[in-house]
Design a protein around this nucleic acid. Structure first.
Length: 568
RNA sequence: CGGGGUGUAGCGCAGUGGCUAGCGCGCAUGGUUUGGGACCAUGAGGUCGGUGGUUCAAAUCCACUCACCCCGACCA
């Protein structure tokens, strides 16, 4: 490709309204362009990256037994009503109305459609297992699109669905997919880790996410310093530090004027936060819930939502708190009635706590569970944090940030039961098909790759997903000698099957090199009057600082070899 | 949806009631330059997000509205 003919331009300045690094770099490099909030166009350079990712994904899916097909984006809403997942997806489903005033959904995911398809074609255990997949645009009306390609409303997703006779079959398919996913990220040149995850609106039992490690990631990963345990904080469990048990003392009232937050309470009584009990009010599907947790922990809303089996969960607003008659800043479970009380198990890991007295400006000392108050449910609803104990081996947990670039779910049979996808087993008994689903967001993977691989000058693409393999620069392209040699090299490399972006513009060296650094093609070749003096080409890896000279003689084959070595 | 912010040329920005709206980058033409974002000259490019109002006069003041960005609840 001639740079001079490329659709897309590099930008010197950081576009306003881009806050995320990958977004800035992808826009500046002329790879993507925003069309509306969470809606993007891919320009030729960006699209090439995406197609490379796509190819790797397809190869791994096919290798794992996947079969590519294509389903429609327009989906009858009736199928969603049948599956019962409409409430869970709620407003994130885009809908369109046809001329007959019939409402259709723009597919946010395809479990409903594929299950409906499968039920028409699968009647016997002999038809299983099946691993159909597609790569297609998905539509989700996210509450807040953000971070460039990291969270958008229309995105390209690879979605594969597994259909097996039973749990064992599902386990086999699940493991196959996990291996395929590991292969995909490795082949893209992107180090990833797999973590335990919550299954959210998709539903189902077990689920794992694949994370690219990046400081800018919006997910927090909790992992063990010693064993293999790793989980998204949404899901992570931990052994909470237990405090020394003291003899329970009699409860005492304590005047605490204008002392409201846990921080203030702890400072006021001169004790650490873990000697206090924190009260948090939630509204779960329109019902108030009172949550108690030890002061040094945070409520994990995902765990709480799962425990309460509710779809909507939010912190109570000031108005909603007032309506319950609770005293904000001094509330506690002691003597509390008429509201559901949910506690984290941490309230039992300590004694003589300081808690609210349900009276303004008053707290209670020496509160002990279960002596002084009762709860309706006690469970693990705390956010695990670095420093806690590993649930598997009790060693110290650590944390780091990551970007979710893939998610796999064991769905089980709840969807196939709802949608009537069943088969006859060997004994002629009808059974629901056991399902799994497996997704990768291609655009997010591309953005995450940039978050993970860049420097102050621009992007540094891993070779397997770079838009081109070689960036060829000619300096003084008005010099016929330079132009001819560069043209010939471009033609030779291209005819060898090497992908070359040839910067044929007659620009100054600074302009060309800065553009090359910004775009981030892994290997840069430069031809100039200076290199031609000794019949050579300058070669520089994007990730390296220094360049070296190679003689022109037999250059094509040597570059080919070099690229091959770096791809394998 | 709650909180904060921004809309002026392709991009980044300036312009607090006054006459013809400006700067840098980019773009076009010509010339001089050329190993890390060169320079000179000339030039093209604007319904100042939209609607309504106040005023002799509005990019500027007021109201409404739309769009986009950021922080929180959701996800590939």
């Amino acid at each position: 490709m001639y740079f001079s003919k490329l659709f897309g331009k590099t930008l010197k300045e950081v576009p306003a309204e881009t806050d995320t690094l990958s977004h800035q770099l992808l826009v500046r490099a002329g790879m993507i362009q925003q069309v509306a909030a969470g809606i993007y166009a891919y320009l030729p350079l960006g699209w090439r990256v995406l197609r490379k990712i796509e190819r790797i994904i397809k190869e791994e899916m096919d290798k794992a037994g996947g079969q590519e097909l294509m389903m429609p984006s327009l989906q009858p809403l009736e199928l969603w009503e049948q599956s019962g997942r409409l409430p869970a997806f709620g407003k994130t489903i885009f809908t369109v109305t046809d001329r007959k005033e019939h409402i259709l959904a723009l597919g946010p995911t395809h479990e409903e459609i594929i299950t409906d398809l499968v039920h028409r074609y699968v009647q016997s255990y002999r038809d299983l297992p099946l691993l159909p997949y597609q790569i297609q645009n998905k539509f989700r009306d996210e509450p807040r699109p953000r971070g460039g390609l990291l969270r958008v409303r229309e995105f390209i997703m690879k979605d594969l669905y597994s259909f097996d006779a039973d749990e064992d079959g599902l386990e086999t398919s699940y493991q196959k997919m996990i291996q395929a996913y590991k292969n995909i990220y490795a082949r893209c040149g992107l180090p990833s880790i797999m973590v335990e995850a919550d299954s959210g609106a998709i539903g189902g039992k077990a689920s794992h996410e694949f994370m690219l490690i990046a400081d800018t990631g919006e997910d927090e990963i909790i992992y063990c310093s010693e064993c293999e345990y790793a989980a998204n904080t949404e899901k992570a469990q931990s052994i909470k530090p237990k405090l020394e048990t003291k003899t329970p003392l009699p409860m005492e009232e304590l005047a605490t004027p204008n002392i409201k937050t846990i921080e203030e309470v702890a400072n006021f009584v001169g004790m650490p936060r873990n000697c206090t009990l924190k009260a948090v009010f939630y509204i779960a599907d329109n019902t108030p819930v009172f949550v108690v947790i030890r002061g040094d922990f945070e409520v994990n809303e995902t765990k709480l939502r799962n425990l309460l089996k509710c779809t909507d969960l939010h912190l109570a607003t000031e108005l909603e708190v007032k309506a319950t008659g609770l005293v904000a800043g001094a509330a506690s479970a002691i003597g509390l009635q008429g509201i559901r009380i949910v506690a984290d198990e941490s309230i039992a890991l300590g004694s003589n706590f300081v808690a609210g007295a349900n009276k303004p400006d008053t707290h209670l000392k020496n509160v002990n569970y279960p002596r002084d108050f009762k709860v309706d449910v006690i469970a693990d609803i705390a956010t695990a944090k670095a420093g806690d104990g590993c649930p598997k081996c009790s060693n110290k947990l650590l944390s780091r940030r990551g970007i979710e670039v893939g998610h796999v779910f064991k769905l089980g049979t709840f969807l196939s039961e709802k949608l009537g996808a069943s088969y006859l087993d060997r004994e002629g008994v009808s059974r629901p098909i056991c399902m799994g689903c497996y997704g990768i967001g291609l655009g997010r993977l591309m953005a995450a790759a940039v978050e993970q691989n860049h420097d102050a000058k621009g992007i540094i693409w891993p070779l397997p997903i770079a838009p081109y393999q070689v960036h060829l620069c000619s300096l003084r392209s008005d010099d016929p000698n330079v132009a001819e040699t560069a043209e010939k090299l471009y033609a030779d490399l291209t005819s060898c099957g090497i992908e070359v972006l040839y910067d044929d513009r007659n620009e100054s060296p600074g302009v060309k090199f800065n553009d090359a650094d910004l775009i981030g093609i892994p290997l840069r070749l430069t031809i100039s009057p200076r290199t031609l003096q000794n019949q050579s080409v300058e070669m520089k890896w994007r990730k390296d600082r220094d360049a070296k000279l190679l003689t022109l003689e037999g250059i094509t084959n040597r570059i080919k070899e070099l690229l091959k070595r770096h791809t394998d």
